[in-house]
Design a protein around this nucleic acid. Structure first.
Length: 277
DNA sequence: CCCGATTCCTGTAGGC
DNA sequence: TGCCTACAGGAATCGG
């Protein structure tokens, strides 16, 4: 499912094919997504030109300019848990759950596919700065603003388990269930441990583990569990590197102990009872 | 303020 | 071409 590495993979995959292109047609087949597709999306986008794509947390940002060169707003795209954005060619028929097409002036199509419809595409008139969804977000995990000191400071007196703490977007963005589990394994921390009862040194290790696992996943083109594909249709190859996610009952790659499954914050959490304390 | 529970959706896996 | 249920999960929202 798309977490930060998958969104980044998507951005890198589609950017060369959509940046600088003009949108000639917009087709909305299913407007009932997590956030309803804006009723005026078609008239907002047709004739607009796509600027440089960026990413914030798990959001893809698509800046638009009008015919006169000034801003025509920004698309805020979220892939939810089953969404993907990929390039198609004019004449390529849509499949089931292909909800939105942006037809481009070179015959390419940016096509949004999302079986579970937890994702959305929204249009922001004022750009990302004014959006409440983005304003609340904590730092990017691969930026200098994210480190062990931050994790330590925010976790004091909190009894919440460290895994849901790490998945809180106000703490750090982009870390979902897969990469939280993997980072805690790399750092040797039990995911059930109260966030407020973890030492500063261990949080330094955890922050480093988060960076390490996310950077490695981006290098591998993300994690494809079932059907994620990047912008050019390629699956991600990080699944082969997973140490704990989805491996409950299997042996720990480090010590051989049987990996355990618990529920934390309504999320399945797999860990090694020997390696993670 | 903190944190657990609920909600949205549909494909898939597993039990019978 | 078997039917039914449970489960997966990002993030907003609600309630204790």
């Amino acid at each position: 499912m798309p977490e930060l590495p998958e969104v980044e993979t998507t951005r890198r995959g589609i950017a060369p094919h959509v940046e600088g292109r003009e949108i000639t047609e917009v087709i909305v087949r299913q407007a009932r997504l997590r956030v309803p597709v804006p009723a005026d999306l078609v008239e907002r986008l047709v004739g607009a030109r796509i600027g440089p794509l960026s990413r914030r947390a798990k959001y893809l940002l698509v800046p638009l300019t009008g015919a006169n060169g000034c801003s025509a707003g920004t698309l805020l795209w979220h892939l939810g848990m089953s969404g993907s954005l990929r390039l198609a060619r004019l004449g390529e028929l849509p499949k089931k759950h292909d909800h939105v097409d942006l037809v481009l002036d070179d015959g390419g199509i940016l096509r949004y596919h999302d079986p579970r419809r937890f994702g959305f595409v929204d249009w922001l008139a004022e750009g990302p700065a004014g959006d409440a969804r983005l304003a609340r977000l904590g730092p990017e995990p691969l930026s200098d603003a994210f480190d062990g000191a931050r994790l330590f400071a925010l976790s004091r007196r909190r009894r919440l388990a460290v895994k849901p703490f790490l998945m809180d977007n106000a703490v750090v963005v982009g870390v979902g269930n897969i990469y939280a589990a993997e980072a805690l394994f790399l750092a040797g921390i039990d995911p059930r441990r109260a966030a407020g009862r973890i030492a500063r040194e261990r949080y330094d290790r955890l922050a480093a583990a988060v960076r390490e696992v996310l950077a490695a996943a981006i290098t591998q083109g993300g994690t494809t569990l079932r059907d994620f594909v990047g912008g050019t249709g390629e699956p991600g190859y990080f699944k082969q590197r997973l140490n704990v996610y989805g491996r409950d009952g299997e042996p720990c790659r480090r010590c051989g102990a049987e990996l355990r499954l618990v529920t934390l914050g309504q999320r399945a959490s797999v860990f090694c009872g020997q390696c993670q304390t």
